[in-house]
Write a protein that binds this DNA or RNA. Sequence first.
DNA 1: CATGAATGAGTGTTCATTCAT
DNA 2: AATGAATGAACACTCATTCAT
Lengths: 185, 185, 185, 185
Amino acid sequence: MQRLSDAGIQVFAERGYHAARVDDIVRAAHTSHGTFYLYFANKEDLLRALTVDCAEALFQLSNSLDVIDGQLDFSRLRGFLTEFLAIYRRYGVVIRAWMEGQVADRKVARLGVKAFTRIAARLAERIEESGAAQAVDATASVSALMAMLERFNYAVSSRNLDLDDDVTMDTLTLIVQRGFFGATV
Amino acid sequence: MQRLSDAGIQVFAERGYHAARVDDIVRAAHTSHGTFYLYFANKEDLLRALTVDCAEALFQLSNSLDVIDGQLDFSRLRGFLTEFLAIYRRYGVVIRAWMEGQVADRKVARLGVKAFTRIAARLAERIEESGAAQAVDATASVSALMAMLERFNYAVSSRNLDLDDDVTMDTLTLIVQRGFFGATV
Amino acid sequence: MQRLSDAGIQVFAERGYHAARVDDIVRAAHTSHGTFYLYFANKEDLLRALTVDCAEALFQLSNSLDVIDGQLDFSRLRGFLTEFLAIYRRYGVVIRAWMEGQVADRKVARLGVKAFTRIAARLAERIEESGAAQAVDATASVSALMAMLERFNYAVSSRNLDLDDDVTMDTLTLIVQRGFFGATV
Amino acid sequence: MQRLSDAGIQVFAERGYHAARVDDIVRAAHTSHGTFYLYFANKEDLLRALTVDCAEALFQLSNSLDVIDGQLDFSRLRGFLTEFLAIYRRYGVVIRAWMEGQVADRKVARLGVKAFTRIAARLAERIEESGAAQAVDATASVSALMAMLERFNYAVSSRNLDLDDDVTMDTLTLIVQRGFFGATV
DNA sequence: CATGAATGAGTGTTCATTCAT
DNA sequence: AATGAATGAACACTCATTCAT
């Protein structure tokens, strides 16, 4: 079942959710069609299971934001962004699948959006605490930030941009710190 | 044929490229299957045609960047972002389709990426001219900026975020100006 | 209309009756779909028209057999075979189409078969007159002969058999003369 | 799969290769579309498989010709023709399909032609050994003979010629023996 | 628990035929 | 008479899902 989940992520990432065939997945998992339907009701059910995993990871990340009281300094922000992108690196396709309404079951989409909303709320709180809230609207900022992070990992990993990972993270953190938190380093 | 292109964009946007059925498209265009295949070789050919349109729009936008010599002030930057997002609002699904490798024909993807690369290069030049290049690496910055813009419109328009359009654009422009161009207003 | 008939034969020959598209035919005839349906009720109607032409040619050939009273000497037989094969070279596909029951309309097939039967009857008469009838049953012989001629031209013209036309005709005539008419030259 | 091959031959024979619908075949085989595409890549692939079967049968027949050293007497020749026609009775449509260039894949046609060429070569050897080679060119003769056999079965079986099978075979053998091998019985 | 052959509804695509110009 | 854009029924092919073993 773990093999099937992993194979699902892999094949969804390679082909996209709709283009991914159950046959591709079971072949990647070195198992059979019958086994797939032993653990999942159907293809969308696999997506739902992956969404639950992803939401769980996002919730844990939002918890880690809670412990930050004062303000997000460079290294803390960098840590958050790194973790966030790690989740994205794994669950990118899954996230896009429910973001883009490719899923019939609304509950699945709601589950994912809820996890995102929670992270956004925690981030907005930190932005407000940082005192940069006057300049840019916190809610709009977070929306932009999330959008940027959502896409950034994908852009870097799928296009062959020759960006060193460390430089990328430093640059990204700087942009976020200045753009969203108003810090002028 | 124009009706078919428009219907294509609409249905691709609603269902996603793969889930979109030719039947949906011809129904939306109030025409027949035969007519569809009179103008397009197959479903992917419609995507190719839309990609060409989108690339054309992006090229024209990159030309408008060329005329800006000195630096991007707030209103000019806002104008650019607004136009960029307008293109995204129209061609979002198409762009995602070739970005996410859902297209078999590599030439299509290359065409789109080329248009993006050109815009990115123009923007990088403007960022360097603005003197904020020391703080943040221009190439990495543009990559992040493009990623953010790519996704932002989608995030705002598809999720039901209650963001007033004017506020959104102002915020977005401010974030970009500060985050990417180092301006501290 | 003559252009359409010629184009029909050509395209039928190239692709076979069923695989031939009306579009191929009108393009070969340098005319339009509308014009095609001005002269022919449908695709099968073109085949019917060509069958009529072919039957006419076969009937004329059977008439030429009637004038031969005594027996078929080598040159007369060779002349008959040459003419027969010329008809086949032109109408081969058409003949096969109704022979192989690819035509829905039975009248068309009957028309063609009638023309063949008439030729067969005339040939059988000549064979009987030639005195070789004791050895081989005339009706069965003619059936075999027709079958052989039917196919022979096709075999020679479509496969790349390096057979000089004159040698081929001489050989063929000799075979027929000896095999079917019992002549031992 | 065997059921599908048999059904394929049957339906191809009834309707012709191009007119035969996959639906007809699966219905005749009492199976489903899915099963058809489980065993064959597409309609042409079924034809290819049948061609392989047919070529195999023809090769075995050519092997049986090899053991004949001296000359083809009446009964041996009759046996050969009977076997040949049996193959034709089964694979006629398939043979015609690749002979008439209705198949896109050239390899298929080549495979069939190769099997025919081999039989033709063996026959030509026997004709030459029989000493009748002076009178009629062996290569041209075999070409004519093959053409005749190819078509003969079809002519007899599809038209309603009231020919008793035994008489037919005797007549045919006699014609071949006299026409092609120069024997004067 | 696991398998994979079998299924058939669903979808992409073709092409004979029509009809407004 | 001639045109060719438009049509849609018909067909090839796919793939999520089932079930006997």
